[in-house]
Structure formats: C-alpha cells, structure tokens
C-alpha cells in the first residue's frame, strides 16, 4: 500500500457554508505528514472526515485502503486519533479512562500505557477533570499512541505541552515513523511540524495551496547571518559578502575598528564559509533556516490574489498573513 491516506476533491458543507472546497492530498505510508494552516482553514474538518466523525459532502477518501464511511470499527482500531479539542470530564482516573479506551481500540501491549505515561511525565492516578490542559493533552497522546496503530491522526498534538514534553513528543513521532507507522498531524505554525514532518501541506480557506517536502523547504529557505570582524573596512567587508551567491539584505555597521554585518542567505553555505575564511572573525551566527518565512511566501504565492505581491518578505506582509490567520 503506497498511500496511508488519500483524498480526492473532498468538499464539506455545513448548511450553506462550504468549509472544504475540494481538498486533494495523499500521505505516503510510513511518512510523517504535516498539515498547517491558520485557524479555520479546515484542518480539523479534514481530520474528522478521515475518522468518519463527519461525512464529506462530496469527494473520495481512502484511509489505509478503505473508505472511512464503510471501514467501520475494524478500520478505526488501526488508527490512533487525538482530537483538536480534548474534553475529559469524567470523575475517573487517567488509568481507568485509558482502560476504557483500550477496550474499544486495537490491542495494547502490556506495560505500554505506563511506559508512555512515564515518558510524558503523566500521573495516571489523578482524576481526569483535575488535570491541567497540558496533562489532559498527554492523556490524549497516550490514548492515541498506546495501541501502536498503523496510522496516527493528531490534531494540534503539541498544544498545551511545555517545550520539554514537546521534544519528547517529537521523539515519539520519529520512533513511530521508524516502526513504519504513518503520522498525519496538524498545526497552525510550521515550526511545530518542521522538526518531524517529511512533507508539509498548507491548507488555507478550505484548499490545499501547496505541498512541499520539508527538505525542499529547507533548501529554498532563508537563513539569517550575522558576524563581526577586525582589520577590514566596512566597505570591503560589504563588497566581500555581497559577492557570495545567495546573499541579500546586507547591512554593515562599523565601530571602534570592528565591523558588524548582517545579511540573509539563500541556498548553499559552502561559498559563504570560503569567503568568511579570509576574515579575522570575532563572532559568527548563522541561524537555522526559517521555514516559516518560506511558507509565508507560499501563503501569498501565485493563485492567491488577495495577499499582495508574491516575493515580498517584509514585515508588513507577514503582518497581513497573521491578520488573516487571526480571523
């Protein structure tokens, strides 16, 4: 089976309001697929369609080779699902609640629940309604992962988790991938999925506007660069840096015989390192590529007339994206 999930022309109307206008994508089996987009873009609706919690108005869905509408309990036992908003109100302990979900999902290996709870730092003997948002989220994650399903569908999995637990979650995703499980997760920001995902789809206003591999995004992404050097004039330093391919937005500052330069770099690093090798460097910072910026470019890419010129990278443009995201 090549695809764990595929959808074709998926549309969904709630009353007269159409939320999905023909969503097409496919998720390769054994990969991590991230779907990002602003709130209200249709991520949750798409995921609920995969689980047959809501039914699409038209279009076709295949999950693990089956139509979710017809797959029934057998299909859903092979999936682990974390809803976008998790409500656990019962007056039961986490352990009892998980025992209940265990009874209605795929087989759970002995000790698996405790191992997962340990990893995430979750106390299973507390009553669920007394748990903080982050701890409820952990319980939701345990519930999704515990039966080692072939497919994990995780809606905003890291929301409410502190950074350390987020790291642990990312490790869990990587391990699941190594075991051949497929992971489909969503987020409203790319930074959350870029660490684990192989492929990113960008959903906006009920349409997929781009599907990119994360490595592809990384290659095309922009890094921020800053260094200080001695024994060179501001002019020469500027010229030296300006000659390196892919460098732009050069800014130079000179004080007390030290020049400080900042710039952006797109593409290969090697030419830059060569050029810098000739300098007496005092400080050098080359930042992680900011995929967010590449994606924001895509949000405003061709075929989307509403958000201005395609290549603008300035902050006012970013703001316009954020405004739309806040809607």
């Amino acid at each position: 089976m090549a695809h764990a999930i595929s959808t074709r022309s998926l549309t969904k109307k709630f009353g007269r309001r159409e939320v999905l206008h023909g969503v097409d994508f496919s998720v390769e089996a054994g990969s991590v697929f991230g779907m990002i987009g602003p709130n209200g873009a249709g991520k949750t609706t798409t995921m609920r369609c995969l689980l047959d919690i809501i039914r699409p108005t038209s279009g076709e869905i295949r999950v693990l080779g089956k139509d979710p509408r017809l797959g029934g309990p057998e299909l859903r036992r092979r999936i682990g699902y974390l809803p976008g908003e998790l409500f656990l109100e019962g007056r039961v302990t986490g352990r009892k609640l998980l025992a209940h979900y265990e009874a209605i999902s795929g087989p759970v290996a002995p000790g698996r629940i405790d191992a997962l709870a340990d990893r995430l730092g979750l106390d299973l003997d507390r009553h669920t309604r007394k748990l903080s948002k982050g701890n409820k989220q952990k319980l939701g994650l345990v519930q999704a992962f515990m039966h080692d399903p072939e497919l994990l569908v995780l809606d905003e999995p890291t929301s409410g988790l502190d950074p350390l637990v987020q790291q642990e979650f990312h490790a869990m995703v990587r391990e699941a991938r190594q075991q051949g499980q497929t992971i489909f997760l969503s987020s409203h920001v790319l930074s959350e999925v870029q660490q684990t995902a192989d492929t990113v789809a960008i959903l906006r206003d009920g349409r997929i506007i781009a599907v990119e591999s994360v490595s592809g995004l990384r290659e095309g992404a922009v890094r921020h660069l800053r260094f200080s050097a001695n024994g060179i004039t501001a002019h020469d330093a500027g010229a030296l840096l300006g000659a390196v391919p892919g460098v732009g937005h050069v800014e130079v500052l000179e004080s007390n015989g030290t020049v400080t330069l900042s710039a952006t770099l797109e593409g290969a690093i090697q030419p830059l390192v060569k050029a810098l090798g000739t300098l007496q460097l005092r400080d050098l910072v080359l930042e992680e590529p900011d995929l967010e910026e590449s994606v924001l470019q895509m949000y405003s890419g061709p075929g989307d007339a509403s958000s201005g010129e395609a290549n603008s990278r300035d902050s006012s443009h970013k703001n316009s994206i954020h405004r739309q995201a806040a809607k």
């Binding site: 609920r48 689980l51 047959d52 919690i53 029934g72 309990p73 057998e74 859903r76 036992r77 999936i79 699902y81 809803p83 908003e85 998790l86 409500f87 656990l88 109100e89 019962g90 979900y101 209605i104 999902s105 795929g106 939701g140 519930q143």
Partner: peptide
Amino acid sequence: ESGQLELTLAHGVT
C-alpha cells in the same frame, strides 16, 4: 455537547 463523543466514535465502535 461536552466534546467527548467524538473521541469515543474515533475508536473501534459503531
């Protein structure tokens, strides 16, 4: 209404 039915239905039940 409390949002819990969604998770139950996502499991192996009809």
